[in-house]
């Protein structure tokens, strides 16, 4: 095993081009476990901690450019307003110690369906900025996950950042685990209201081979909200609408039985989380509307 220590992004890209099998390591949450447990012996380990700009973020007009290695703790502390869903998801990642080291780049690189950031990124809408010596490209988050623990990265590419749309409405994230802290998701759900476009987006974790959106559920809810004039009248979403949305989210799942939970539990729990997060975000949206109206 060789240890590569690029001091800059350019050096990292060059090293990855020269050694496409090199395994990037930043927070170490996944890679070191695999090494410690003898599941993986990469030819090259490439430390990205020295590439400073990976740990930085910029808040732009429309979106946040979030460096791949920005620790979850920083997301929780600094980006709660811009990326509320991701900040909530970050808070559920493993332990404080892990949150101090791990960032979304690791979740995306591993592309495990259980990665906590995925549902939030799917719901918020994001693009993954990847780069190689050949050039840079942005992969829409919906196209990023290509299979179980597989992603759209080419062998010579590295994840540089994620461009996440700034929240234009309330967002929520829920995750079921069989412990009250430090737990890998049995399943997870991200939900975002996008009042500007009058749409909603979802993200489901650990209930299909890859993180997915429940598109049929989104479409149903978009239509139902529009039809009922909910965006304007700020009424409570009718229970039957919420229920059907939840059922469609459950139906979007393609889960398995494993040691963490049964498929049918996952399907069930996704439905419950869908309904609850819809309720929470909608309550919040109504509250904001009232405040805005009151102020006006």
């Amino acid at each position: 095993m060789d240890f590569l220590r690029p001091a800059s992004w350019e050096e990292a890209l060059a090293a990855k081009a020269e050694h496409p099998t090199a395994v990037p390591i930043a927070g170490g949450t996944d890679v070191m476990v695999e090494i410690n447990f003898d599941h993986r012996r990469p030819e090259y380990l490439m430390d990205l901690n020295r590439v400073g700009d990976l740990s930085e973020w910029e808040v732009g007009e429309e979106s946040v450019r979030l460096g791949a290695s920005v620790p979850y703790t920083k997301i929780m502390e600094n980006l709660r307003a811009e990326l509320p869903g991701l900040a909530l998801a970050s808070h559920t990642v493993a332990s404080p110690q892990i949150r101090n080291r791990g960032g979304v780049g690791g979740n995306l690189g591993t592309a495990s369906p259980a990665g906590d950031a995925h549902p939030a990124l799917l719901a918020a809408g994001a693009e993954v900025e990847v780069e190689s010596v050949r050039g840079s490209r942005r992969i829409p988050i919906d196209e990023f996950y290509t299979g179980v623990k597989r992603n759209a990265l080419a062998a010579d590419e590295l994840i540089r950042s994620v461009h996440v749309k700034k929240a234009d409405g309330p967002q929520q994230f829920s995750k079921v685990g069989t412990r009250n802290a430090m737990v890998i998701a049995v399943c997870a759900f991200g939900f975002a209201l996008h009042p500007e476009t009058r749409t909603v987006r979802t993200g489901i974790g650990s209930a299909a081979p890859t993180p997915i959106r429940a598109k049929a559920a989104e479409e149903f809810l978009n239509a139902a909200l529009e039809e009922g004039g909910f965006w304007d009248n700020g009424k409570i979403v009718t229970p039957s609408v919420a229920k059907q949305f939840a059922d469609l989210c459950s139906a979007a799942c393609n889960p398995i039985d494993d040691v963490r939970g049964t498929a049918s539990y996952r399907r069930h729990a996704v439905g419950v989380m869908a309904r609850r997060t819809l309720t929470w975000t909608w309550e919040s949206y109504r509250g904001t509307r009232r405040t805005t109206e009151g102020a006006a």
């Binding site: 079921v176 889960p255 039985d257 049964t262 498929a263 049918s264 539990y265 069930h268 729990a269």
Partner: peptide, 14 residues
């Protein structure tokens, strides 16, 4: 007791 025991979802879908 696991969550599936409390929610009637302990049986495999298959």
């Amino acid at each position: 007791v696991r969550p599936e025991h409390l929610t009637g979802t302990s049986l495999s879908e298959a």
